[in-house]
Amino acid sequence: MSEIPNPAPTVLLTGASGVVGQAVLARLTDCTVVCLTHSTPVPGHRAARVHGDLTLPYFGLDRSAYQDLADRIDTVVHCAAVTGFSVDAEQTNDLNVRGTESVLAFARRAQAPLQHVSTAFVARRDLALDGYGSARPEIYLDSKRIAEQAIVESDVPANIVRPSVVIGDSVTGRISQFQGLHAIAGALLKNALPMLPLEPDTRIDFVPQDLVADVIAQLVRTGTTGGEYWVTGGPAAPTAERVIELGLALGRSLGLSLDAPRFVSHDMIDRLIRPVFIDALPRAQRRRFDDMLAMTALFNTQEPFPSTYGHVPGVTSFSARSLEDAFTTSMRHYARAKGMVRPSEVAA
């Protein structure tokens, strides 16, 4: 591992419109940031933008523009990725694998270190992740593993950052796009979660987006490379039973009438629930159910993730209580955004 301080570097940021990308952009106000954008604009920010496509040679730029961009960049932060479980293999690999190879080629041309955002769930090699209808989490995870391997085997100085499930900002709860865990907890707040296919003592590992962004921003500022950083709750991650308790407590404090879901096995869902209730649903609803089921499968272990982000200078670890507070804050924001309670009650 090496550390070469680089004050106020110029950063090429991919995926700036996504959950992690937007949070990183907000943390790099002391840097010059160039956002490589494709189809989705970066809302509410004055960072410089270059329209490009990670899946095309030279990002789809002409060679002189590509070289000019490389000459300007000191550090690359790669957040862009397909993260959905229902996206086909070709599209997933196109961005997650070939897109990462394209970013590596650019970083090599720019002689710039790379901060690559992967996922902590690459560690879930012992789980059977197929058989969830349209949801294919194994395609996503395999693509992230292949991308990591390409980075490890390259000559580009790099870090691999592996967050677990990302929730909203720990202070405001805000997030650019609600994620799978929001959908599960949201169903709880709507009293539409009669059962949950998890063991009560399964760890639900999540981290607030500002923590992930702080880790990446500090790695950019210090110029640190050659590390793998697990940005996870680890042993501090709450159990599924505790997450349900927190959700019920929040909902009831907001005046919602809620019932506690029953913990059941995945096998029960497959044998009894899917054939009778799920298969008859419209396609979009079946897809949402399959995605939620696949996410619970990813959590389905009592073994905690590694948690090593505390080794990054200037980043403070989150305690179990801090993670619980961040979850409650994130779900309070979800309730307000979805109009589930009056704004005055949610803000209280």
Rank of each mutant, 00 (worst) to 15 (best):
residue 298 L to T: 07
residue 271 R to E: 07
residue 125 R to H: 13
residue 307 S to L: 10
residue 338 K to G: 13
residue 18 G to F: 05
residue 80 A to Q: 01
residue 25 L to T: 08
residue 94 D to M: 08
residue 4 I to W: 15
residue 278 I to Y: 10
residue 199 E to P: 09
residue 284 A to R: 09
residue 292 M to S: 05
residue 92 T to C: 15
residue 340 M to F: 12
residue 14 T to N: 02
residue 274 R to W: 03
residue 146 I to P: 08
residue 304 P to K: 04
residue 208 P to V: 09
residue 33 V to P: 03
residue 23 A to S: 04
residue 8 A to G: 08
residue 300 N to Q: 09
residue 56 L to A: 13
residue 116 H to I: 12
residue 186 G to C: 12
residue 242 R to T: 11
residue 129 L to P: 06
residue 47 A to G: 13
residue 221 R to I: 05
residue 219 L to Y: 00
residue 272 L to I: 14
residue 237 A to D: 13
residue 297 A to S: 07
residue 56 L to S: 12
residue 112 A to P: 01
residue 158 A to L: 06
residue 3 E to Q: 14
residue 222 T to K: 03
residue 346 V to C: 11
residue 261 P to A: 01
residue 128 A to E: 14
residue 281 L to C: 04
residue 34 V to Y: 00
residue 341 V to F: 05
residue 209 Q to S: 15
residue 48 A to R: 14
residue 138 E to W: 01
residue 3 E to F: 06
residue 151 I to R: 00
residue 214 D to G: 09
residue 113 P to M: 05
residue 56 L to D: 06
residue 225 T to I: 13
residue 291 D to P: 05
residue 150 A to I: 12
residue 65 A to D: 15
residue 195 M to F: 15
residue 42 V to T: 02
residue 34 V to T: 03
residue 216 I to Q: 00
residue 259 D to N: 14
residue 253 S to A: 14
residue 26 A to K: 13
residue 152 V to A: 14
residue 125 R to F: 02
residue 220 V to W: 02
residue 316 T to N: 13
residue 252 R to Q: 11
residue 105 A to F: 06
residue 113 P to S: 08
residue 130 D to A: 01
residue 164 S to T: 15
residue 163 P to W: 10
